[in-house]
Amino acid sequence: MTDMTPTRPLLEVRGLNKHYPAGKRGLFGRQMMQVLRDVSFDLYPGEVLGLVGESGSGKSTIGKAVLRLVDSQSQAMRFDGRELAGLPTEDLRRLRKDMQIIFQDPYASLDPRKTIRATLTEALDTHGLHRGAARQPRLVALMQMVGLNPAFLDRRPHEFSGGQRQRIGIARALAVEPRFIVADEAVSALDVSIQAQVLNLLADLRAKTGVSLLFISHDLSVVRFISDRVMVLYLGRVMEVGPADQVHFAPRHPYTAALVSAEPSLHKAPDRIRLTGEIPSPLNPPSGCVFRSRCPYALPACATAVPDLRPAGEGRMTACIRDDIL
């Protein structure tokens, strides 16, 4: 973890919204499904911001939106002070060098026809990096950075385990020396023991390179391990933001507390929060606070009040109209 000092954010997002068309077009047009609702956050140089929430909360959509892999609407979305919305294609292509992604599925994210050398070379060629005699030393260095034998460069993906393939995916993201990486459920498809190895690798690479990470996961304990701060998302809205350990050990929002309660443990408090039912559909979200239909502390006012994020002390923010429950 890093000690964050006041500085200009590397990534600034304000009022991010995303809609998808749903179902067939009817008499009054096609119904729209809103998957992100007024999401705002900052990510600082060298920081790891963890993004956690259940499946369907909109986590991956945030990652794709900030990388401009999907269209979205926002009041502002700036990288290093530069507005991303409406950025010309050629400028966006150049910016890709600074903004990379590690995908969830290590089996589907690599071209089975290409050797590892070809995969990494393609990334370098796209941005004109390490040409000629500098190419081989760079490829060797990338393999060593992710803990793989450089002799494996001429092998193909089917010759590697899932954990090794994910290391190759990390090497591909690092190849162009980015300043920011979205790690989208980067360890969720791996066995627990391999997860720990990849998490330690990412933490070590962050310390060595200073790269900023938006680390996306449904597992709060995994997010806490690697993150400086954590942002908790539910049905497209931010519920809580704060330092990772504080969010995990002293949650201020009932949803965060429920995520903590759901973690495997030999010692569970008798008053742990249990969620019932599934996360509502974005097509028909609850009125007011989107979490109220599953919240054990909901008040009648929660059906109409849409809580904004507000300060909760010690660098914390929470979106709840109550401050007397946790």
Rank of each mutant, 00 (worst) to 15 (best):
E12Q: 10
S60V: 11
R8N: 10
K18E: 03
R25P: 11
T5C: 04
V13L: 00
V48Q: 02
T7D: 05
T5A: 13
L36P: 07
E54Y: 04
G56S: 06
S57N: 07
V39H: 01
K64Y: 13
L43W: 00
D42L: 04
G63Q: 06
Y20I: 06
P6W: 08
G63Y: 03
Q75W: 02
V13T: 01
E47A: 08
V13S: 02
K64A: 08
Y44D: 09
S40E: 02
K18S: 06
A22H: 05
L36Q: 10
V70T: 07
D38T: 03
I62W: 01
Y20E: 06
S60F: 03
A65Y: 01
V48T: 15
P9W: 00
S40R: 07
R25A: 13
Y44H: 09
Q75R: 13
K24Y: 08
L43T: 10
D42W: 03
V52P: 09
K59M: 05
A22T: 00
L69H: 11
D80S: 12
R78A: 14
L27R: 15
F28D: 13
Q31V: 14
G46I: 10
S57T: 11
Q34I: 08
L10G: 10
M77C: 03
R37H: 15
D71N: 11
V48I: 15
V52I: 12
S57P: 07
Y44A: 08
M77L: 03
L27W: 13
E12T: 05
G50E: 06
Q34D: 11
D71S: 09
M33Q: 15
K24F: 09
A76H: 08
G46R: 07
G53C: 13
K59G: 11
A76R: 12
T7V: 09
M33A: 15
R30S: 13
L67M: 14
G58H: 01
A22V: 03
R30P: 09
R78I: 02
P45Y: 00
I62Q: 03
L49T: 13
M32E: 13
Q75P: 00
G63L: 01
Q31L: 15
M32W: 14
Y20N: 02
D80F: 02
Q34W: 14
D42P: 05
H19I: 08
K18P: 00
Q75L: 08
Q75K: 12
G63E: 08
R30L: 07
I62S: 00
L10E: 06
T5Q: 14
S55M: 12
V66E: 04
G29D: 13
Q34P: 13
E12N: 05
S55E: 12
F79M: 06
E12R: 10
P21A: 09
D71M: 05
G29M: 15
V70G: 00
T5H: 12
R8V: 10
R14Y: 00
G46W: 02
L27C: 12
G50C: 10
L69E: 13
R14M: 00
